[in-house]
Write a protein that binds this DNA or RNA. Structure first.
Lengths: 214, 214
DNA sequence: CGGAAATTTGACCAGTTGGAAAAAATGTTA
DNA sequence: TAACATTTTTTCCAACTGGTCAAATTTCCG
């Protein structure tokens, strides 16, 4: 029995990596659905098709699994913002940022909910990333956006709150999915809702509600 | 020992009402912070300054406390939308709806988080309200908004997604408070952040980002 | 005061949960 | 096949959790 704790950091065999991925996949489902405390190792193990002690052979603790998922997804989460390009056309850049974020809400709803859960709890495991990497990145991109405003290429407004509102509106479709579906009903709550949302959000962020000709 | 179960439905004495309020107040803190499963009766009891059996004298179960909080806040949550007035000025009505919702995020962050937690879990206790009362109300108000569009008083867009985006952007400041604070930093993350948010959101929803003179 | 009703407490319980230990089973390789 | 490392299962445990119950205490009211 060699220290299995090593296995977690860098999986040696391909089998180990496969099992770990299996566990992470199952854990993502359970955590996203029930929150950290609501999830049990037994549930995760069963979903991964193995026994609890077997799962604990690959990860030292429940918290370790959660930490892995969270750090993994934080990177994913930040990617779209990283792509916001200073040298591109402001309107097109922001439009495609909104689209990318909405696609993430559609394609990675479990990750989004995991993140939302963490935020609701006060980000006990992610606060340093928020105050470090995230803040840094947002500060950066806020400058880019401010530059566009200075050049008169988009209306002047608060770049930080602009980014917040893009986060909020897009993630809403993942985190509050039940509500969205319930309100839209069967007719409009199907697959098309993301298309509708994309069209709407684009219009909102670009032109707002007030008619141009006062 | 008369059936204490009656006490929950209609508190007899003023003392009973006071204690129940004390418990609900404490429970709101704990539930909002830890989610339903993350909260323990012991925690709530201690926060309310009483023993666990004593708390259970006033509420029959943990779930009963949670249910009371949830139904109580759903009403509060719907109030601002109810006030949206068909006969008012569209721009002013929507503006003040946004302001009211943002004030709710500022003044009732715990309630907002309780609600967010419930949504993330798939609304197991609130799904009927969402599909019933809430959907009804939104359908109603969507018609009002559509009427304004037909009259050319606001730009044509999807009224349902408009309402979603108002919910999302305003609640974001309660539910993702840690993130907002972390990104804004000490300088701008203080009390003023709600004022900034209000100014920003008003501008966004009214005029969007694209300069009028293309 | 004195008794009844309401409130509070301490002891307890059964089920669950995260996790440990060790043995058993299964490769793997020479 | 023998020796060795890896993986899996069986068994177990201590802490925690929601909730009960009877006894003790306090409050209320004539």
């Amino acid at each position: 029995m060699p220290a299995p704790s090593k296995a977690k950091a860098q999986p040696k065999t391909r089998i180990q990596k496969e099992k770990q991925d299996l566990i992470l996949e199952a854990a993502l489902n359970i955590f996203a659905l029930n929150g950290y405390r609501g999830a049990t190792i037994d549930q995760i193990a069963e979903a991964a098709g193995m026994s609890k002690p077997n799962l604990l052979y690959y990860f030292p603790s429940k918290e370790a699994i959660h930490r892995r998922l969270l750090t993994g997804m934080l990177d994913l989460w930040l990617d779209p913002l990283r792509e916001l390009d200073d040298s591109g056309d402001p309107i097109a850049e922001l439009r495609s940022y909104i689209r990318r974020k909405l696609e993430m809400a559609r394609d990675f709803p479990r990750e989004s909910r995991l993140f939302a859960n963490e935020m609701l709890q006060g980000a006990p495991h992610a606060i340093d990333v928020l105050e470090g990497e995230l803040k840094q990145l947002v500060d950066d991109k806020a400058k880019v956006i401010t530059g566009w405003m200075d050049a008169g290429r988009i209306n002047r407004t608060d770049p930080y709150h602009l980014i917040f509102s893009i986060w909020a509106t897009t993630q809403h479709y993942a985190d509050f999915d039940v509500q969205v579906r319930a309100v839209l009903g069967k007719a409009r709550g199907g697959e098309g809702r993301f298309e509708d949302a994309a069209r709407y959000l684009e219009h909102l962020f670009m032109d707002g509600l007030r008619p141009k000709a006062g």
